[in-house]
Design a binder for these strands. Structure first.
Lengths: 225, 225
DNA sequence: TTTAAAATATGATATTTGTCATGTTTTATT
DNA sequence: AATAAAACATGACAAATATCATATTTTAAA
């Protein structure tokens, strides 16, 4: 099993603020695990007793709405921490986490890391920074949801996924999402998402290989207003 | 000028975690100020160099969208801190703050309080808790925006304002908002907000005295799905 | 108080988006 | 390879919401 103090992944999240001693201690009680595509990592309403450090793969965080749709609120990728909020509050999770592809994660028990949050102010400040960033991003999403059309939101989602998660060697988006996932990110009906994507294809903004999507004209997508 | 260490307001926000010594120091460098209804406290894009502790009144935090509408993302009332994020990140504010009625606030310079955030872990943990709460609330707003109708969202907004900010002696909502404000909270056209409010009135869910709104059937509003 | 401006209200209509139906393609399984 | 299941696609129509026009009422200012 890998050692946290030597793990490169931590450079990308707030764990980088921990001392070597703290990392050694955490390393000894963490659990490495593999999660298969489609598996539920935790459910809405579940009490988390720790955080997941994502070593590989990507997952979606979503919330079930009254009408039965699953709104995707955020995506967590390689390098990031999943379930950070559980460290701070004892409330249960308001979101469900599902793996979008096969994942490698390390689970760190809350009991083991909560003390560091109290003692190591550099660490808690890093966590604060990430929360502040998430909050800013959430504000932007709210405004987009409220004020932009499905077409605009979908264009932005494509640009976001492209810029944040990158592309495969053949140029297709490295995060493979179903049309339903796109609909759930954008907050629209699956059929509407499909329709808009078809439209983008007709206009030459994207091309598709099966369900893989390749962005052909990033600037035009960014310009959609 | 009042002294922070004796001020009751701090009990309602993370400043309560500061020691008496810290409060005395902050007290000596804070600026008390009055803000008139409609005044801009800070602009979108402005760099904040401190936090405001709201002693009285209420303000709205909004973000201008591309189509010229001002989406209200959050409201900050008496007891809460305004501009907490400026303590954590050096980025400029992504939101504009405008007073909804006359306000009493104390401005605490970032330079004075940032050290406490590093040293006093109890304080930083309190800030973390508030951020975590805000983030959870933001997630809920995203889902509502994406999945609920204007009618549902407006009903929820009324309930939220009622429950969170209370009512006047005559039973009207203590926070006085224009129809345009309601539209900007809910993310709809002003005319649509007006129409739905008129409908609520017809159905006996609310009554109005001028622009004052009184909730007549809270349970029915909560039941709107 | 009178007047002007802003906010509220409502109708008519256009646009956007959702829903239902149905067909096609892709993917997974035997 | 054959089959079933899931995902994708598209048309037709309905519902929700936005926009434009225009009153009416309320508020602010002269």
């Amino acid at each position: 099993m890998g050692k946290c103090e030597q793990c490169i992944i931590k450079q990308f999240n707030s764990l980088k603020a921990l001392t070597t001693d703290e990392l050694v201690r955490i390393s000894s009680c963490k659990t490495s695990m593999t999660i298969k595509k489609g598996d539920v990592i935790f459910e809405e309403g579940e009490t988390l007793n720790g955080v997941y450090c994502v070593k590989d793969g990507i997952c979606k965080l979503s919330k079930l709405s009254a009408n039965g749709k699953d709104q995707i609120v955020k995506m967590v990728v390689k390098g990031q921490l999943l379930g950070q909020r559980s460290l701070i509050s004892d409330e249960s999770s308001n979101l469900q986490a599902v793996a979008l592809n096969d994942m490698e994660v390390c689970f760190i028990p809350k009991s083991e890391i909560i003390g560091d949050l109290q003692k190591n102010s550099k660490f808690s400040f890093e966590v604060l920074k990430e929360m502040a960033h998430d909050l800013k991003e959430a504000d932007d999403v709210i405004v987009n949801m409220a004020q932009k059309s499905v077409r605009q939101r979908l264009a932005e989602a494509l640009v976001y996924i492209h810029d944040s998660f990158g592309v495969n060697p053949d140029g297709t988006l490295s995060v493979l999402l179903s049309r339903e996932d796109f609909a759930n990110i954008v907050g629209t009906a699956t059929e509407s998402a499909i329709r808009v994507l078809s439209q983008f294809k007709k206009e030459g903004l994207i091309s598709t290989i099966g369900k893989q999507i390749k962005i052909e004209d990033l600037d035009a997508l960014k310009r959609i207003e």
